[in-house]
Amino acid sequence: MVAGELVSQSIVNGILLGGIYAVAALGLSLVFGIMDIVNLAHGHMLMVGAYVAILVFAATGITPLVGMFIAMGLLFVLGIVLQKVLLKHVVGEGIEQPIIVLFGLALILQNIGQLVLGGDARTADLGIPGDGINLGFAFLSLPRTVTFVVAVVLIGATWAFLQYTKTGQAIRATAQNRTAARYMGIDTDRIYIITLGIGTALAGAAGALLSMLFPINPFVGWSYLLKAFAVVVLGGVGSILGTLVGGVILGVSENLGALYLGGGYRNVVSLLIFLGVLLLKPEGLFGTGGGGE
C-alpha cells in the first residue's frame, strides 16, 4: 500500500501542475471555441515557448518568469502570422484542411526544435532563491507554487480581458454568432487574428512555466497537445472555470496514476480519462455544449 503522505503529496502536486495545464488548455479552447479549429500545433508551440524560456535562462540567467513574457510575445506574433499567411485560406473550409495545415506546422516546429537544440531534454530553474512551504501533510515546493500562482493570474487576466475589454467582448460575440457579430460591425477577420495570437501566446506561457518543472525535448508537443485537449474536453469548450477545474483533475489523476501504476502510466491515465470523457460526456463536465461535433 502507498503511504498516505505520498498520496497527499501527489494530490497537492497534481493541483499545482493542473494550473499550468489549464493555461495551455485555455489557449486551445479559445481558438477552438471561436474559430472552430483544433490547433494541432498547440503542443509544439508550447514546446517553443518552453525553449525560449530555457534559452533566455541559459544565456542570461534571467528567470523563466520573465522569459515567459518573451515567449508569449514571440508566440503571439507567430499566431498572428500563422492566421494571416496560412489559416485564413482554410478556416471555414471544413475540417480536413486546417487539421492538415496545423499538422504540417507541428512537424516543422518539431524539426526546428531538433535542429536548434538537438534531441536532448533541457530544463530551466526558477532562478529565485527560497524554500517551499510545509503544510504538514504535503510540501509546497517553491517552483510548483510560483508557477501555479502565475498560471492562475494568467487565467484570471484572460478572463478579465474577455469580460471587460472591447476586443474581448467582440471575441465573445464572434464566438456566439459570427454572422451576427459581422452585422454589428465587428471585424471578425481581425478577431480571428487576435484570438489565434492569444491562444498561441498562452501555449508559450504554459511552456515557459513547464520548463521550470519538467525537462523539455522537441518531441513533447504531441503529448502536451493531448493533455491540453483533454483538459478542454473535461472542462467544456469555452468555460474558463471548467478549464481550471479540468486542469486540476488531469494533474491530480496523472500524479495518482503514476503513483499507483508506475511512472510509465502517467500519460496513459490522462489519455484514458480524456477518451472516457470524450465518449461518455462529450459536452464536458462543465461545458455548454460544443462537444461531439
Binding site: I100, V101, F103, G104, L105, L107, N111, Q114, L115
Partner: peptide, 9 residues
C-alpha cells in the same frame, strides 16, 4: 521533416 511539413501545407 521541415520540408515535408512545408510541402503538405
Amino acid at each position: 521533416t521541415t520540408i515535408e511539413g512545408t510541402l503538405i501545407i
